[in-house]
Design a protein around this nucleic acid. Structure first.
Lengths: 349, 349
DNA sequence: ATGAAAGCGCTAACAG
DNA sequence: CTGTTAGCGCTTTCAT
């Protein structure tokens, strides 16, 4: 319900019978103003429920503290958690956080970065969509930049990532320790460094244990639920079916579970074991509960903000990389249940 | 990597040997400028990779198109989907979307609203945390306001909501049709109008079918996962245990499933049936797949933006309410499986 | 303690 | 076509 147009300081000044400077003072430095004048101005102020024009304020001062977050998909709870982590510490500092969803598109990502540049953001946290597409744009940023979760090709900025190599290795080792030898992997897009690292961790653990990795055991997904489903089905239909699958992100794990559920003669823990990367909300709801390599997601945001704030403070500070160790949540899905031999018969009745 | 401070139009003008106005022109109305001058200015422009100061632009013009979204919890995919829906249509219009997470706190919500007011947002989409706490603040908004998903006490603004009454009725009827008579509900906080409507829908369906609702069958949760878990456990331990439970939102349904899973002698479809409100990502992954009353979530955002844009166009337009019908996703969890009689014995071995 | 005035970086008439 | 000029709404000297 827009009222008459917006009130300016000039209006208020006129109302209170003072100069515009005085109004500004009661707003920003009340201690410099006579108590009685304050009263009068305040009365005028909320008689029109005055609200300062943020844009004008910003030009007159240096521009307000603003930090931006550009992420690939807000529907992914992983990324949403980064927002939450950042927001918690920024709010305490009185800094505004602006989030943009690039929808995994490099052009949207570039737009978002340019917007942040236009508004002179002091800091930018970027979860890149692609490891090199927007490199040039990022170079031009006048803000403190911190890259999160996925590496850029040029490692010139502060960085906060999960130790994906370690995580991939741990997940795989978990399966090996559970007695599996035929272990498949559903990894992410080649452009994703996290996916690559997890994959490399997998390879390293396999090799270290003298296990072979048949080509058809390596499926490259796109980190979305459907690819987990489709590739999961493909794996389950192999003649030499893997007994364990390592799924490289939350959404694909969901899809994989769906595929397993849809398969005849198989079930989680019955004929096929699973370890996923990333916590998923249903991990404790499936049977057996799902073992995952969980990322300290909110912590990613918290650390990113810390680095940003430090760099705003001291722009000359050396580049820093924070490697957050993943957390093993061992819940049971990494092993087959006793009855797994009888699967085919028991479920076909 | 902040470079020397930021370049202004004045600098560029000087570099190109033209007036500041000319620079502004090549940026905004190039057709009014000599081709050769354009070249020269453009050269200067990107020799310093100039980026206009958005704040200054905003004061000089009317202020750029800006629409805000204030929601209670971005980690809840339901709300995140509203963001996505809004973003899709706003991006097409070249309007910037600013999102703030109120974390379900009225004070944070008020802060966010005031920020939007300061930046002269042209439109605000509000998913309220409380039905009355910030009423006064919302009244003062100079923007086109559209309330989404939860009603405010004073129905003075455009509104887009799910038809919760209908949804509650449908969910309950589904259970009744499946043969249940002992039907419990886990509803949401009393302050939430959606929760109330769903609850009323439940009551109405029960009454209409001549079924009684024992007091202990009505549990009031807080829309978070844990309350679903705790209240679910409480229900399952009742002497006169309900055979069906209607859970009133996504998170609590997750908790409820967890409680069922943790219970001895019971399982989904074995002794207890469930219908949930809101789609959840695991709905198709549990066994039997979960029947839900799903909300067209992105559509909430799309409709909200439509109303906002219409009102910006014509502020005098009458208040509008859009009631989106929920969608029944009948998947099986609303009924008990044949073997449900033998549950207690079969699982106690 | 207060007002006048300059300026923040940019846009948009208004003259030539 | 281009430069001069007057704002936009606010903050902040600099006087008084």
């Amino acid at each position: 319900m827009p009222k008459s147009d917006q009130w300016t300081m000039k209006d208020v000044a006129q109302l209170a019978g003072v100069s515009i400077a005085t109004v500004s003072r009661v707003l920003n430095h009340p201690e410099q103003v006579n108590r009685k004048t304050i009263e009068r101005v305040k009365a005028a102020l909320d008689s029109v429920s005055y609200s300062p024009n943020g844009w004008a304020q910003a030009t007159a001062r240096t521009g307000p503290p603003l930090v931006g977050l550009v992420l690939p998909d807000i529907l992914n709870p992983f990324f949403a958690a980064v927002y939450v982590g950042m927001n918690e510490v920024l709010r305490a500092q009185g800094i505004t956080l602006w989030m943009a969803d690039s929808q995994n598109r490099v052009d949207y990502e570039r737009e978002a970065l340019e917007t942040l540049q236009r508004y002179r953001a002091q800091g930018i946290v970027l979860i890149p969509t692609h490891s090199s597409a927007n490199l040039a744009t990022v170079y031009k940023m006048d803000a403190a930049v911190c890259v999160v979760d996925r590496k850029l090709q040029d490692n010139a900025w502060d960085l906060v990532v999960i130790d994906n190599l370690l995580g991939g290795r741990q997940a795989t080792q978990l399966l090996i320790d559970a007695g599996h030898t035929r272990i498949a992997i559903i990894t992410g897009p080649e452009a994703s460094t996290s996916a690559n690292d997890r994959y490399r961790g997998y390879l390293s653990a396999m090799e270290q244990n003298g296990l072979t990795v048949p080509e058809e055991y390596v499926k490259v997904g796109d980190f979305k639920q459907f690819s987990g489903f489709a590739l999961g089905q493909a794996l389950l239909q192999l003649p030499e079916r893997p007994t364990a699958i390592f799924s490289c992100n939350n959404l694909m794990t969901m899809g994989l579970l769906e595929a397993i559920r849809a398969s005849s003669g198989l079930d989680l823990g019955l004929g096929v074991a699973v370890v996923g990367f990333d916590e998923i909300p249903i991990a404790t709801l499936v049977k057996p509960p799902l073992t995952v390599v969980a990322s300290p997601v909110k912590e990613l945001g918290v650390q990113a903000v810390r680095l940003i704030l430090e760099r705003i403070e001291n722009p000359e500070k050396g580049r820093e990389t924070v490697l957050l160790p993943p957390q093993l949540m061992i819940r049971g899905s990494e092993r087959l249940t006793k009855s797994s031999q009888s699967v085919t018969t028991s479920s076909s009745q």
